[in-house]
Design a protein around this nucleic acid. Structure first.
Lengths: 187, 187
DNA sequence: CCGGTTTGTAAGCAGCTGCTTACAACGCTA
DNA sequence: TAGCGTTGTAAGCAGCTGCTTACAAACCGG
C-alpha cells in the first residue's frame, strides 16, 4: 500500500499491512472467498511473506479475529455495549469495527478460528448478562447478541430493504427498547 | 441412495436425489464448501448428471432455495409464522425446514442466488409486517426476521452456549414476548 | 428385433487454491 | 568493505474445483 520512502524493507510494516488487508477482505468476503493472493496484492506484498510471517492463511485469520474482537469489549461499558456495537455495525466509515461481520461471514462445522470466535461471543454475552438479574440471564444475553448478529446478516449480507437502508438511530431505538424488555422482564 | 429394483434408470428420481442431497449439504456447509462431487456421491449419482439436469452448481442451488423457501410461507398463518419458523429452526429432526440455514450460510457480494434469497426474505417480512399497524411496520418486521436469522447463526453456526443447548420452548417464549413488544409498540 | 433416444459412466481439462522452494537484493555490524 | 542474516521475489507443485467430452448400457416405439 502506501510505502514510505525511508523504509523500503520493513518486516513489521509488511506484517501489519498483511494483517490489515486480511481484516478488510475477511470481513467483506468471509474466509473461504478470500485468497492469499488477494490479501498479498491488497497489502502490496509478496504472498510468500504471508506464509513466512503467519505460517498459514488460517493462522492469519485467527490473528485478525483475536485482535479486532477485543477492541470493542475494552472500550465500552456494559450498559452501552449493545448500542455501541450495533452502531458500529450500522454506520458506514472506513475504520469501523468489523468483528461481527468477520465473525458471521465465516461458517462451517469443523471450522477455522472456531475457538476464538466462541471466546469473543462468550465475552460479549457475559457482559450483556450483567445487565439483568433474571435467572436465565445468560440465555437472554445470548438472544440479544443473536439479534445483533442477525441484523448484521440481513443488512450487510443480504442487503434487505428497508432494514439495509434504515436510519441507524431508528434501528437502535427499536432494538434497545425491545432488548430492555427482554432483559428486564423477570417472571 | 435407496434404489428401487424396478427402476434402475429414472431421470426424475436421480434429479430429485441430487436436489435432496444438495439441500442437505448446502444447509450444513454453505454454498462454497459444498462440492458437486459431494452432492453426487450423497445422491448416489454420477456428477456429470448434475450438470446435465441443472446446468451448473449455482443453478442447482437456486432450485434448492426456491423450493424449500416457499414451503413454510404456504403452510403457516401470519400470527404463527414467527414461532413456527423459529421452532422448525430450533427443533432437531431430519425433515425440518432448513431454509434459513441455507439462506444464511451463503454469503458474498456479487452473489449466488441473491435474487431468490431476497424474494424469500421479502415474503417473510411482508407477512410479519401485517401483524402491526405501526407506520414503520416493515422495518419492525425486518428486525424480527433478523432476530430469527441471528438465533440461527448463533445456534447452528457457532454453537454458542447456553443458547445452542437451550429448550426451544424457553427461546420461543422469550422471543415471542419481546417481538410482540417490538411490533405492538406504536408511538 | 432393430434404431434411435435417454440415462449413466469414466476420464480428463483448465483454472484456481494454499503453500514451498530457490534465489536475489538489501542493510546492518564488525 | 566483507560477511551474513533479514527481507523480498519469482516460479512452481500438488491437490482440488466446476465443468465437459466421449462412450457404454438400458430403454422403447416401430
Amino acid at each position: 500500500m502506501g510505502e514510505q520512502p525511508g523504509r523500503r524493507r520493513d518486516a513489521a510494516a509488511t506484517r501489519q499491512a498483511l494483517l490489515d488487508a486480511g481484516a478488510k477482505l475477511f470481513a467483506e468476503r468471509g474466509f473461504d472467498r478470500t485468497t492469499v493472493r488477494d490479501i498479498a496484492e491488497l497489502a502490496g506484498a509478496n504472498q510468500a511473506l504471508l506464509f513466512r510471517y503467519f505460517g498459514s492463511k488460517e493462522a492469519l485469520f485467527e490473528e485478525v479475529i483475536a485482535r479486532s474482537g477485543r477492541e470493542h469489549l475494552e472500550t465500552h461499558p456494559p450498559e452501552r455495549l449493545l448500542s455501541a456495537s450495533l452502531r458500529s455495525m450500522l454506520e458506514p466509515g472506513g475504520d469501523r469495527n468489523r468483528t461481527l461481520e468477520t465473525y458471521l461471514r465465516s461458517s462451517g462445522s469443523g471450522d477455522v478460528g472456531a475457538v476464538l470466535r466462541q471466546e469473543i461471543g462468550d465475552e460479549y454475552a457475559r457482559i450483556l448478562a450483567t445487565l439483568t438479574d433474571a435467572p436465565d440471564a445468560e440465555l437472554r444475553a445470548d438472544l440479544a447478541l443473536a439479534w445483533l448478529m442477525g441484523i448484521g446478516v440481513v443488512r450487510e449480507l443480504t442487503g434487505k430493504q428497508p432494514l439495509a437502508g434504515a436510519d441507524p438511530d431508528d434501528i437502535v431505538r427499536l432494538v434497545v427498547t425491545a432488548v430492555r424488555t427482554l432483559l428486564e422482564r423477570a417472571e
